[in-house]
Amino acid sequence: MKSVHMDVHALLDAGVIERRAAGFILPYDAVHVDFFLKAG
Rank of each mutant, 00 (worst) to 15 (best):
E18P: 00
S3Q: 14
M1C: 08
V16G: 06
M6V: 12
A39I: 06
A14M: 10
D7H: 09
L26R: 09
A22H: 09
A39G: 01
L37Q: 08
Y28W: 09
F36E: 15
V8W: 02
H9R: 05
L12S: 02
G40A: 14
R19L: 07
I25M: 02
D7C: 11
A14P: 02
L26F: 01
L37G: 13
A14F: 03
A21N: 12
M1E: 13
S3E: 11
H9I: 06
D7L: 12
R20T: 07
L11W: 02
H32V: 15
L37P: 01
A10Q: 00
F24P: 03
V8T: 00
A22R: 08
H5K: 08
S3N: 09
M1V: 12
D7I: 15
A21F: 05
E18C: 05
I25D: 05
Y28P: 00
E18G: 10
D13F: 10
G40P: 10
M6R: 15
F24W: 13
Y28T: 00
H9M: 15
F35M: 08
H5E: 11
G15N: 03
D29Y: 08
Y28V: 02
F24G: 05
G40K: 15
L11A: 10
D13N: 13
H9T: 12
D7P: 07
K2R: 12
I17W: 03
K2H: 08
R20S: 04
H32S: 05
R20F: 07
G15L: 00
D34V: 15
R19Q: 12
A22L: 02
F24H: 14
G23E: 05
A22P: 07
V16C: 00
E18I: 03
L37A: 14
L26S: 06
A39K: 15
V31H: 01
D13G: 11
A21H: 05
Y28L: 07
D13V: 08
L12T: 01
V33R: 07
K38S: 02
H5N: 14
L11N: 04
G23W: 05
F35L: 09
K2A: 13
K38R: 10
L12F: 02
K38C: 14
D13P: 05
Y28K: 04
A39L: 02
H9Q: 15
D29H: 03
E18A: 04
A10K: 00
A30D: 07
E18M: 00
E18S: 03
I25E: 00
